[in-house]
Simulated assay, not measured.
Amino acid sequence: MSLYESVQAVASASGDETVDWDAVARAAKAATDPGRIELSPDDEQAYAADVRAARERIRDVSALSFDVPETVEIQNRHHWIDANVETFRRVVAPLEDQRVAFEDAARTLNTATTAAALAFVSRHVMGQYDPLLLGESDVHRLYFVHPNLLRAADELDVDFPRFRRWIAFHEVTHAAEFGAAPWLDDYLAERVQAGMEAFAEHRFDSEPFRELNRAMTAVEGYAELLMDEAFDDDYDDLRRKLDERRGGGDPITKLFRRLLGFQLKREQYERGRAFFEAVVDARGVEAAGRVWDDPAFLPTEAELENPSAWLARVPESA
């Protein structure tokens, strides 16, 4: 790991695109310790067992029909960076036709900020369900960033196998959501693309981003609720400690979290969870899963604050 090498990679940014993606990957990895990922056969089997157990428990609790992705990877931080560079590239693709003054300087700045974002997230992400938005393939993937899981379990002073299993349950809930809602991929991708195309036309269209935030509030809130309903052990201490971790850190870390939307994600967790708790209290877990039957069943902004309005609008069963 070398900050000098990271700066060198950014300084060498070149090409015709607004971001030099090869330089992004080099710079982000140079600034990030990859972490150790030597796994014994027992370790590998434990991850696989957690995913299988989560799949079966979540199927039973939610009554959703889904399977886990065929691609389940145990990664280090550099692996995660490589896996996500292409996603970042697809998202900003609508901006590639833009030409600005001082193109070389703009490319260097864009490369530096993107690399910094990837490097920061790679040091904090523990698991990721990746639907490969805007990609040409419909193959989804599931990642576990082993060094970050080890570090988080140590910092939180919790048993690693139990913590790993809890994170597996969270990520498999996302597989349940996308599996139960075949329309969800396109719904999210279309709103990302619409927002970025508006930027490319030098205008800001807030509606796609509002719809995206509303959908992600449902995605994250349902996942939070369902993982706790399905998890086969006590989780109160895990929930409390992880919530504290999400809001903690030194001032620089907190600034990065806010700039990268971590605060928004935390609000999605909390707001979405409160909505689904009210739905479950009224009708049960299976009824909450109706949200994935049709995009029209996503809660509106008003319904997120007033779940009874959603309950009145959405029928209990198909």
Rank of each mutant, 00 (worst) to 15 (best):
F199E: 04
S2A: 01
A83R: 06
A83K: 05
L311W: 05
Y222I: 13
A30I: 00
D157N: 14
E136I: 11
N213S: 14
R214G: 12
L3S: 09
N213E: 07
H140G: 07
E229S: 09
E177F: 03
E56N: 01
L156Q: 00
Q193D: 15
D16R: 11
S14Y: 00
S65G: 06
S206R: 05
Q45K: 14
I37G: 02
A101R: 01
E73Q: 07
T111F: 04
F160P: 03
D237C: 00
R271H: 08
L150H: 12
I58P: 01
E224D: 15
F160G: 05
V219L: 14
R52T: 12
E56R: 02
V158Y: 03
A312T: 12
F144A: 03
V158A: 06
Q45S: 15
M196E: 12
D232M: 00
D293I: 00
A119P: 05
P131F: 09
D104L: 04
A25D: 10
T114Q: 02
F169Y: 14
F102W: 15
D60M: 02
E96Q: 14
F275R: 08
Y235M: 07
H140A: 13
E171R: 13
R203N: 02
I81C: 02
R99E: 14
E136P: 11
M216G: 05
A282H: 11
G179W: 08
V139E: 13
V85Y: 02
A112S: 07
G284N: 04
Q8P: 00
A309I: 05
A200S: 12
G179K: 06
E270D: 10
L39C: 11
D205I: 00
L95C: 02
T108F: 01
E70N: 10
L238N: 04
T108S: 08
D154Q: 15
G248Q: 09
D232W: 03
R258S: 13
A318I: 01
R151E: 14
R313H: 06
A153K: 01
R258T: 13
M216S: 14
R240L: 10
Q128M: 10
G15N: 03
E17L: 10
F199K: 00
E177R: 09
A278I: 04
S2R: 11
G127N: 09
D20I: 01
A200Q: 02
L109Q: 05
S12E: 13
L184N: 01
L264T: 15
P147A: 09
S6Q: 12
